[in-house]
Write a protein that binds this DNA or RNA. Structure first.
Lengths: 186, 186
DNA sequence: CAATATTTGTACCGATCAGTAAACTGATAA
DNA sequence: TTATCAGTTTACTGATCGGTACAAATATTG
C-alpha cells in the first residue's frame, strides 16, 4: 500500500502543522507523523527542506487572501467587499480557533527568514482595505488609519481569543470593528 | 575568572531570549551562548529545566504588570491610572520593538504548557482596566467591552508593528486606543 | 507489453537537543 | 586551619534534529 500525493495536497496539511506548533516546533518527525507522508516525499516536493515548506505555506495563504479578500476590496463594490471580508475572515480563522500564521511568524525570530512575505501580506491587506474605505467615502488619511486599525484589531483578537480559549472574543471583536468602520463611511 | 549570579539576575536575561526566539527556538545552547551562563548554573537555579525557566519568566512578567499596571487600575485614580497604563505599556514594549511573550506563547503549542498563567494575565488585565473604566463613568457592559478592545488593540499593534518593522504603527495605535477610551468616559 | 520517469520507504549521517554527573572554585565561618 | 556550601565548569548521555542517499514501488509513456 502506498499513497501518492502532489505538492498542492501537502501544503494545507503543512499549514495546519505550522499553525499549531510554530516554525521551530514543527519538526520533520512531527510532520511525517501527523501527515503520514514520509521524509522522502517531503524532500522530493520541497528540496529546500523545512524552510521551503514554510515558504510554500505562506505563499498559499497569501494567494488565498489575495483572491478572497484583497482583490474584492480593491476592485469590487466597496461596502459589499468590506462586509465579505469580515465574514470570510471569521470563517477562515474558524472564529478564532485557528491562528494567523503570518502574524505568529512575525513575533519571533522566524520573521527574519520570511521578512518580505510577512511585510507584504500585511501591507497589501491594509492598502486593499484602505482603497475600499476611500471608495466608501473616507479621505485618504482616514482610510489609512481605519484600515490599520481593522487589521490590527483582527490580529489582536486572534491572540486574545486563543489566550482566553474563548471563541466569542474573536467574533465579538470582529463585530465591533465592523461597526466602527461602517460608522465612519457614512 | 568566574562570575556569580543569582536567580533574580538571570530571569530578565531569559525573558529577552524567549521573546526573541520563542519557547522552542530558545535552545539551551543558545541560552548559554547569549547569557554566558553555563548549563550547570542554569540547572542549579532551575532544576525543572527549560519549562521552569519559562515559567519563572512568565511569573516575573506577571508581577511587573501587577504592580505597574493592574494595581493602579484597580485602586488608583481611574483616569490617571489609564493614562499611566498607555505610557507604561509603550515603554515596556519599547514602542513595539519588544513583543508580549504571553501573547506569543498563546499562539502556538506552548499555550498548553502555560495555559493558566496565560489566561490569568489577560483576564486580570481586562478586569483591572474594566474596573478603572467603570470608576471613570462607564456602565459595566461598556467597561467590559472597552477593556477587551483596549487589550486586544495592544496585542494587535505588537503583531503589526513587528510584521511591518515600523515602530510608528505601535505608538499610533496606542494613541488611537487611548483617545477612544477617553471619549467613552466623558 | 517494455522503457522511462516520478514518487516513496528506509536506513543512515553528523550536529544538536535537553538533561545529568561530578569535580572544582571561592567565599563564609567555626 | 579546616569544614561547609552555594555556585560553576566540563564532560558526557541517549534521543532527536534537519538533511541525504538510494533502492523499491508505482505511474506514465512509447
Amino acid at each position: 500500500m502506498k499513497t501518492v500525493y502532489e505538492r498542492a495536497d501537502i501544503v494545507p496539511l503543512l499549514a495546519e502543522i505550522f499553525r499549531e506548533l510554530g516554525y521551530e516546533g514543527a519538526t520533520l518527525s512531527r510532520i511525517t507523523e501527523r501527515t503520514g507522508i514520509g521524509k522522502g516525499s517531503l524532500y522530493h516536493f520541497f528540496p529546500g527542506g523545512k524552510e521551503e515548506m514554510a515558504g510554500a505555506v505562506l505563499a498559499d495563504i497569501d494567494a488565498w487572501f489575495e483572491q478572497a479578500v484583497y482583490r474584492p476590496l480593491r476592485h469590487g463594490d466597496a461596502r459589499q467587499a468590506i462586509a465579505a471580508m469580515w465574514s470570510n475572515v471569521n470563517d477562515y480563522f474558524r472564529s478564532g480557533r485557528r491562528i494567523c500564521l503570518v502574524g505568529a511568524f512575525a513575533l519571533d525570530d522566524t520573521r527574519e527568514r520570511f521578512s518580505a512575505a510577512i511585510g507584504d501580506y500585511f501591507i497589501r491587506w491594509i492598502d486593499a482595505l484602505g482603497s475600499a474605505l476611500m471608495r466608501a467615502g473616507c479621505t485618504e488619511g482616514e482610510a489609512q488609519t481605519l484600515a490599520e486599525e481593522g487589521v490590527c484589531g483582527i490580529q489582536g483578537a486572534l491572540v486574545l481569543s486563543r489566550a482566553l480559549r474563548d471563541e466569542t472574543v474573536f467574533s465579538r471583536s470582529l463585530e465591533t470593528l465592523a461597526k466602527r468602520l461602517e460608522a465612519e463611511t457614512r
